[in-house]
Simulated scan of single mutants.
Amino acid sequence: MSTTTATATATHPTPVADAIVQNLHRAFSPLSHLEIRNESHRHNVPPHSETHFQVVVVAERFNDVPSLVQRHRLVNEALAPQLAGPVHALSIVAKTPAQWQAMGEQGQAVPATPKCRGGDGTFATRT
């Protein structure tokens, strides 16, 4: 069973999130699970921006890719148009269906991404 969730509303179009969904479906079908989380609101950007995302991709294709680095490279490759343009930051969780199921059985959740340490003023440079 495949599930896809994205942060979209009728009042605020989400063309970047929609393109991310399409590209990941194209690259990793069939997908067991896909989540697109727009985390831009946690950063110093205008309201309704689409610049910071977390993607959770669960696909059988990862069964043949044991290296987490290689999985991330595949996701980055699939999202190259977005990474070359509007997406400033991307957090990736790439799991096999068995790994995803084990996480659920163990009650593990996808960890939250860290707070921005740049443009929101929380990171101070020491001189």
Rank of each mutant, 00 (worst) to 15 (best):
V45G: 03
V65H: 09
P30E: 07
T3D: 13
Q82A: 05
M1I: 11
I36T: 12
A84S: 12
H88D: 01
H52Q: 13
E105C: 02
P47E: 05
P97E: 01
V87K: 05
T5S: 09
T51W: 01
G104T: 02
V75M: 08
R126N: 12
T113Q: 08
G121D: 14
Q99Y: 07
P111L: 03
A98R: 04
P97R: 01
T11L: 05
G121Q: 12
V57G: 13
N23S: 14
P46L: 09
T7H: 11
V65G: 09
A109S: 09
R42T: 15
V16F: 08
A89I: 10
E77P: 06
E60M: 02
E39Q: 14
G107T: 06
S29E: 08
A59T: 06
E35F: 03
S67V: 03
Q82Y: 04
F123N: 10
P86C: 00
P114H: 01
I20N: 07
T96S: 04
P114M: 00
D64E: 12
T7F: 10
A98G: 00
A89M: 12
N63A: 13
V56Y: 09
H12R: 14
R117F: 11
A112P: 04
R42M: 15
D64R: 14
L68Q: 15
A124D: 07
D18E: 05
R73V: 12
Q82W: 02
H88F: 03
H52Y: 14
H72L: 03
T7V: 09
R37G: 05
N23L: 11
R26Q: 13
A10G: 02
L68S: 15
V75H: 07
T4G: 03
L24K: 01
A84C: 06
T11N: 05
R73W: 09
S67Q: 04
V58C: 04
T51L: 05
P13D: 12
A27V: 02
Q106N: 14
C116F: 13
P97F: 03
T14Y: 02
R73S: 14
T96V: 07
A59G: 02
K95V: 00
V87A: 04
G85C: 11
P46E: 08
E77R: 06
T51I: 01
Q70C: 07
F123S: 09
S49W: 09
R71V: 13
F62H: 02
Q108P: 00
K95F: 06
A59Q: 00
T7R: 08
T51Y: 02
S29I: 00
Q101Y: 06
Q22K: 08
A19F: 02
A8E: 08
Q108N: 03
I20T: 08
A19E: 11
T125N: 11
D64F: 07
Q70F: 05
H12F: 12
P97C: 03
A112H: 04
Q101D: 11
H88W: 02
Q99K: 10
N44R: 15
E35C: 06
N44C: 15
A59P: 03
G119T: 10
A124M: 08
S49G: 09
N44F: 15
M1L: 11
V55C: 11
K95G: 00
L24W: 03
L68I: 14
L68H: 15
V45K: 06
T14P: 02
R61E: 13
G85R: 09
R37H: 14
N44M: 15
N76S: 11
E50T: 10
A8T: 08
M1N: 11
A6F: 15
A17Q: 13
D64K: 13
